[in-house]
């Protein structure tokens, strides 16, 4: 029998059904219209350094049938206990076996090829990567990108602080794999921005 659950375990959503639906809606809208900034209520009491938006997204998306990978910074006993308790998701040490990946920042993202890109028969079996970034908008002093593709009328410009500077190059290779590919959810301080596999990214 494992050690008794730490007396410090923190709660999850106050209303598991409606809060999870709201977070799901934000993620879905973010992927449907890439580059739009979708605000959502974060889980401020999530154990650090897991960000409040990443915490809300993963509680909404993960369950006991979705293996979860997290980078070394996020693999603390407290975060593990919290994620296990609220999602039931099994942890995977292999990024390419994970349905969801929690990444604490650009420096921890690593090579995108290590995540699952699905197969031609089951492209949906890819890893959805939730990457925490510093913020969105020109006032953040971040890197500006121009986006194009499905869900975007023409082009859409976004500024992202804390995204990998070579994001455009790293995502370019994925476009040729379609329908395979991975979808990226960028978790800011109070909003989420989606970069699905179909989005063309250009640095400006």
């Amino acid at each position: 029998m494992p050690a008794p659950l730490a007396a410090t375990l923190r709660p999850g959503f106050a209303d598991p059904v409606f809060d999870a639906q709201a977070a799901f809606r934000a993620a879905m809208s973010a992927l449907a219209e890439p580059g739009t900034i979708r605000s959502l209520a974060g889980l401020d009491h999530a154990p650090a350094p897991l960000g409040s938006i990443a915490a809300a997204l993963i509680l909404a998306l993960a369950d006991y049938e979705t293996p979860l990978w997290r980078d070394a910074l996020l693999a603390t006993p407290e975060i593990d206990a919290w994620l296990r308790f609220h999602t039931g998701a099994p942890f995977s040490d292999a990024p390419d076996a994970a349905a969801f990946a929690l990444v604490s920042g650009a420096e921890a993202l690593g090579d995108l090829d290590r995540f699952s890109h699905g197969s031609d028969l089951a492209p949906e079996a890819s890893t959805t990567v939730i990457l925490t970034v510093a913020g969105f908008g020109a006032d953040t002093g971040g890197v500006a990108f121009r986006l194009a593709g499905p869900g975007i009328d023409g082009t859409r410009d976004v500024t992202i602080a804390g995204a990998p500077v070579d994001l455009a190059e790293r995502r370019a290779a994925d476009l040729a794999l379609y329908p395979r590919g991975l979808d990226l959810l960028l978790a800011g301080p109070n909003a989420v921005l989606g970069l699905p596999r179909t989005t063309r990214i250009e640095r400006i």
Partner: peptide, 8 residues
């Protein structure tokens, strides 16, 4: 009482 997991 803290609801660690609200009834679900």
């Amino acid at each position: 009482v803290t609801d660690l997991r609200v009834p679900e």
